Simulated assay, not measured.
Amino acid sequence: MDRQRSRLPPSVRVDQIVDAALRAFSQAGYAGARMDDIARGAGLSKGGLYAHFTSKEAVFEALLERHLAPAPLDVDAIVNDADSVQALAERIADHLHDRLANPAMISTLRLLLAESGRVPHLAARWRHETAATHFADLGRLLALARQRGLCRDSVALRQPWLLLAPVVHTVVLAALADPDEPVRLRDRREAHVAMMVELLDPAGRSPCAARGS
């Protein structure tokens, strides 16, 4: 088995280490988790772990990079595959909720919230890189959808963060929630879709648009 493990590509080994780190940090916190614990969880010696990461902070940063820097939106695919504002909202929600409102992301964000004072540069990096990337992607997506007639000129086109805010709130709430009172992620996704339809309805047929007309 040791020979099999020694042949694993570095990328696979790093994934194993990051998985073990999430478990160790979740159980003991940043201060309590030890490199020995992470190495043991990944099936490595401590020396083997240091061959990939020079410090606990480096492991923590890799963990954040994996879970708090999700893939950007595929703007063209989302818009091209949508033939209605409902379909557009569903596709946006699918991407945001699959990549942000998932258990690994929630566990990692819980760590970031707890340890942001210890590693403020990592918290700042998430705010500036992850959030800013999604804002920019949503802005480009809505501009393209507007050109295709899939959405009307609304406040969402000028303030695309409005479409990201519900899922960010959901993830933060889930990270802070009591384990005995889990957040109903499916219900929140459905409400998010309904909100986007009302904001983006190109024909102005949504309840909010009707009341404002």
Rank of each mutant, 00 (worst) to 15 (best):
R152T: 06
L44T: 01
R110S: 04
R146A: 13
G212V: 08
Q147F: 13
A145K: 04
D76A: 06
G29E: 13
D180R: 07
A77C: 03
V85P: 01
E61L: 15
A132N: 15
A71T: 12
V79Q: 02
L142S: 12
V85L: 06
I92M: 00
P202T: 07
V155G: 01
G32M: 11
H95D: 07
V119K: 07
S11K: 05
E115F: 02
G29I: 14
N102C: 01
T54V: 12
L22K: 06
R23P: 05
V168F: 06
E129V: 15
P202K: 03
A69Q: 14
P70L: 11
R118K: 10
I78K: 03
E129W: 12
Q147I: 15
H95G: 00
H97F: 09
T130L: 10
L100N: 07
R189S: 02
Q27C: 10
S116P: 07
D76L: 03
S45E: 11
D178S: 00
R40F: 00
L8D: 14
N102L: 03
I38R: 04
R34E: 15
Q159C: 02
I106S: 09
G32D: 14
A156W: 02
H134Q: 10
A31H: 14
S206I: 04
A87R: 09
R186F: 12
A62L: 09
T54G: 14
G212I: 04
L73G: 11
A77T: 04
G204H: 04
A51Y: 09
R40I: 04
P10H: 09
A165S: 08
L157P: 09
A156C: 11
G139V: 12
A71E: 11
L100G: 05
S206W: 05
G204Q: 06
I92K: 06
P179H: 00
K46H: 12
V12Y: 03
E57V: 11
S6E: 11
I17P: 08
A21M: 13
L122M: 15
L141R: 05
A33S: 05
D81S: 06
